[in-house]
Design a protein around this nucleic acid. Sequence first.
DNA 1: CTCCTTATTAGTAATGATTACTAAATATAG
DNA 2: CTATATTTAGTAATCATTACTAATAAGGAG
Lengths: 123, 123
Amino acid sequence: MRTTKQRKLVLEIINNSHDHLNAEDIYYECRKKLPNISLGTVYRILNQLSERQMIKRLKFESYDCFDSMKRQHSHFYCVKCHHIYDIFDELINVDKIKVPGKINDYDVKFVGTCDVCLNKKED
Amino acid sequence: MRTTKQRKLVLEIINNSHDHLNAEDIYYECRKKLPNISLGTVYRILNQLSERQMIKRLKFESYDCFDSMKRQHSHFYCVKCHHIYDIFDELINVDKIKVPGKINDYDVKFVGTCDVCLNKKED
DNA sequence: CTCCTTATTAGTAATGATTACTAAATATAG
DNA sequence: CTATATTTAGTAATCATTACTAATAAGGAG
């Protein structure tokens, strides 16, 4: 895998973001520094980086989001406001899980209604 | 929500299946009994049922799969053969998890290479 | 440093899963 | 049984993602 300015930029954007960016978000961020980068390039880089486990692909809505690999965490998705909250509690001891194979990665996702939206409803 | 033969059939198919069927799979199953059912109807019913938490929507590949609600379980996805294994160990005590809201549902997904594919590789 | 090979890119077209739309059909409350 | 609102089949449209191609650029060998 060659070091290109496009790939470095995509990785940098993901590693420096605390949000859950999708391909389009990352594309627009990229264009601030590389105005000619193409969306296809962003998609290809995202695929390469997640295959090599340099970033994490998340499936929440109709599109995929991407997270840095910095720290394992879970997610709580609010069905009302569609916000994704990071949950940093250690939930699973992966070494103890018995699966019929070798685990590369795992993902814990909670779905529900966040406190902000619950409070709105009670008005 | 009215009781229609289409909706009853979709729910029945999901509840009686041990696989992880996608919309197209369910559509073809449906057509065995209702040859005129349309794919759009299947999609609409799948959305209604999962919104009402009568079935569970799973996001693994480029398309969504659907599971019955019968028994909470996790999944192990093999990146080589794309098979989805059910994991029935209790991994998480949901009551103890602190999230900023009310949890309706959760999902634990492991990704890696299954034993079958690991053994193939070693030949 | 220069050349050469091969990966990568920008731009665009194509794909595939899902949703939107509409007139006709059907469930169910009264 | 009748009226009304929901649901349906069939089709067109949408949206995220992938495929394709000629041009560009990374980086190893000389």
